[in-house]
């Protein structure tokens, strides 16, 4: 038994090394990963890199076109757009990260439990069906309207709308794992359901869950920007890509830089995350591609 366990561990290790190797051979995935890491880097180092504070207004410098002093120009209140985009990356990345994390944890938990307990499965999946029937952007807007604008509420709302799909994916993966002989063997050996679920099944459904989490991350960034753009996300004057666009829309005739730069950053980040996610999926979960 221990022998087999050691062999399995060794095989898994080799497989992981092979995956890492394959990942670096996948050009798209590497590009996506690089973009994502650059964005994370910019977000983390925003206070160091930014020439100003995100809320510093220089009233005389309103709506200045891009120049050496203000590489991305200034906004209606004379704030440096470059600085606000860097700080906006912090908001976007934090929201994407936490929504991804919460969704992954909750979705996995629900999916695993559903795969194991029949009655719970029925109830949870009906709830997921119901939540899925409500378009997620609208539901997020509705939640935000009731909860009020704040970063925490954005994270809560986006997590609620992303969990049903994640739970479904985790559940179907878990059902497959549960049907495999080794789970039956562990079960026959008298392991408790919770032990089986968390010790044996959870690690085996990670692949599709992680892939989905990368898409949730990307989607959260898009939706946050959209909510803020609509005025129901992160409240002004906090710097967020959606907020910059929201303010930029009013001066679209005078200040293209307030639209183009945040748009490019948002799209590029999402692009990077999507590529990264596709690469992960090709590696970890090839049958679904």
């Amino acid at each position: 038994m221990t022998d087999l366990y050691a062999i399995r561990k060794k095989l898994l290790k080799e497989q992981r090394q092979l995956l890492v190797h394959k990942f670096f051979k996948n050009r798209l995935a590497v590009t996506g990963g690089t973009i994502t890491f650059v964005m994370l880097f910019l977000a983390l180092l925003a206070p160091v890199l930014a020439p100003q504070g995100p809320l510093d207004m220089i009233v005389t410098d309103r709506l200045l076109a891009p120049s050496a002093a203000h590489p991305f120009g200034t906004d209606t209140f004379g704030r440096d757009v470059f600085t606000r985009i860097l700080y906006g990356a912090r908001v976007s990345m934090a929201i994407g990260f936490f929504v991804g994390l919460i969704t992954m944890a909750a979705g996995m938990l629900l999916g695993l439990l559903a795969s194991y307990f029949k009655l719970l499965d029925e109830i949870l999946m009906r709830i997921c069906d119901g939540l899925n029937a409500i378009p997620s952007t609208l539901l997020a807007i509705a939640f935000m309207s009731a909860l009020g604008g704040s970063i925490t509420n954005v994270i809560v709302s986006l997590s609620i709308v992303s969990i049903p799909r994640m739970a479904r994916i985790a559940r179907s993966a878990a059902v497959v794992v549960k049907g495999q002989t080794y789970i039956e063997a562990v079960s026959a050996a008298g392991a408790s359901p919770l032990h089986i679920i968390f010790r044996h099944m959870a690690p085996n459904i990670l692949s599709p869950v992680i892939v989905q989490a990368s898409y949730v991350f990307a989607n959260a960034i898009i939706t946050e920007a959209a909510l803020s753009f609509l005025g129901v996300g992160v409240p002004v004057p906090q710097p967020s890509w959606g907020n910059i666009l929201y303010e930029g829309k009013d001066v679209i005739y005078n200040a293209w830089w307030m639209i183009v730069y945040p748009a490019v950053f948002t799209a590029l980040t999402v692009f990077g995350l999507n590529l990264f996610g596709d690469g992960l999926r090709d590696l970890l979960d090839p049958h679904t591609s």
């Binding site: 898009i222 666009l245 799209a267």
Partner: peptide
Amino acid sequence: MVGISMPSFLLGLLLIL
């Protein structure tokens, strides 16, 4: 690929511009 990364409101703003 670009399309998938381009939320509608972003594209809308860029199209207007």
